[in-house]
Design a protein around this nucleic acid. Structure first.
Lengths: 258, 258
DNA sequence: AATAAACCCTAACGTAACGTTAGAGTCAAG
DNA sequence: CTTGACTCTAACGTTACGTTAGGGTTTATT
């Protein structure tokens, strides 16, 4: 018989840079439980456990919470290669963001030297979250490939200023809030009051990003639900909003087709 | 009379992306206290407060703790332009690290596809902290310019594997621990037992990085104390170690010159 | 064989940096 | 003069661990 190589906590710690306490913690919360234990109760990690830890660390680098990470890698539809592709995409976005911050620093130093004041928006270039929008856009690119919708969106959004983003975000948030209010009021996704907001939502996307066809509506409705990042962001407005929104969009699509 | 422009919490929040609660928190802990309050107790932030928040966010992006940030920007020797230069340097290092992680992802996907196993070290490229060393090296570059010492160091360290870094770190840590023990034992920096360790420390640097001349020793001794990142790292071994080490190095240098 | 030194465990409290209610005052617009 | 958007303090909750404390285990070295 052949015995698979097993690592103990210190070895894992040395190899990966995570603390032993962190390994204990990940075991406790069920994020990374070692394949087996020896008689003394020592944790023995397998090669597969190591691979899983690697994935966890990639997600952590992207500021996913441990609960999110666990949710993702344990979901039935989880695909390692796809996840790696996503992670790469998001890391690239982070690099872009950091580079933008570096530029902001350069500008700040320059203007400091010359005694000029910067606009208050420029002072925080790269620090505000507007980039998450762009992140999501890239995400979309990955899922849709180079579709016409994506190209149109990229062309439009490229010219947007921070003020534009603020306005767009505010408008979008406004629509979500209104739907959230309807949720709280106890109406169903099929009701006209909701469907009117879905129409507004679609118009908003068409006006600011790309021509939001019925097919794309359907895709978005599904994606919002399937993708944790969309989901958590939407659920911030009101828990359960994503599910509701998805159902409402599905109904909207069905009726538009009929 | 001319009244300076004042911002309230929501405006600051919209402008910078930090939450209102965060502003409250920064006020509470004294990290960012608004210039003044109105009669109703509303926080009114000035243009200068905004600039300070910008600096805080740069540091935060680099994972400095709020206590550290406060310590740095309130220290008497604090220089805004210098800090910006450092931040830029560190952000660049972070970009490098992220790019390394992206490479690791590429490698992982590639090997996955071909069914090959990666070495366990390579699995975690970019995730382990070895880079802090390189970070500090770059820091040194910035402070010293392109000196011969720096070039030699860069040439040597470029070839190091993770195993080398582990060994070097262990050796360095060992020397620090020994000095820390002497500190706890109550000896003075001038005593022979300490000076022997300083000699070992210098040899360690010469062996692994560059020819550590007396002049460089002196520079290092001062830098350790002056630079928070060196200081906090060294003080991790034992609080007060940096001061002690600095004194011991100063004495070593004096005696070597005589 | 014994005895350190280095390593492992659980349990439980501590901490940093906020998030999240809860309850109440402020202020401009209609 | 009231309503909606904004503000405040106070205080408890949360995440992701760090940090003892107290006690077994394994391995290297007398």
């Amino acid at each position: 018989m052949f015995q698979q190589r097993a690592f103990r906590v210190k070895q894992i710690s040395d190899l990966t840079g995570v603390s032993i306490r962190t390994l204990h913690h990940y075991d406790e919360i069920g994020l990374l439980q070692p394949g087996r234990m020896n008689d003394a109760g020592y944790r023995l990690y397998s090669q597969d456990d190591l691979a899983r830890l690697q994935e966890i660390l990639f997600f952590r680098e992207l500021d996913f919470s441990l609960a999110e990470i666990r949710g993702i890698i344990e979901s039935p539809g989880y695909n390692r290669v796809e996840a790696l592709t996503d992670q790469k995409q998001l890391l690239a976005a982070k690099v872009t963001r950091l580079k933008k911050i570096i530029k902001t620093i350069d500008k700040t130093m320059d203007n400091d030297k010359r005694g000029v004041d910067m606009s208050n928006e420029d002072l925080f270039g790269g620090l505000v979250d507007e980039e998450t929008q762009a992140e999501y856009a890239r995400e979309a690119k990955e899922r849709w490939g180079e579709t016409d919708a994506y190209k149109e969106s990229a062309r439009k959004t490229a010219k947007y200023t921070r003020a534009d983003w603020e306005r767009i975000n505010a408008e979008g948030g406004d629509i979500y809030s209104k739907i959230a209010d309807l949720v709280k009021a106890g109406v169903t996704p099929e009701e006209a009051s909701v469907q009117i907001q879905i129409q507004k939502w679609r118009d908003h996307i068409t006006a600011n990003f790309y021509n939001c066809t019925i097919d794309i509506c359907q895709g978005l409705g599904e994606m919002y639900l399937a993708d944790v990042r969309f989901k958590t962001n939407i659920d911030k407005v009101c828990p359960g909003l994503t599910e509701f929104l998805s159902k409402a969009i599905a109904f909207y699509v069905d009726n538009a087709e009929a």
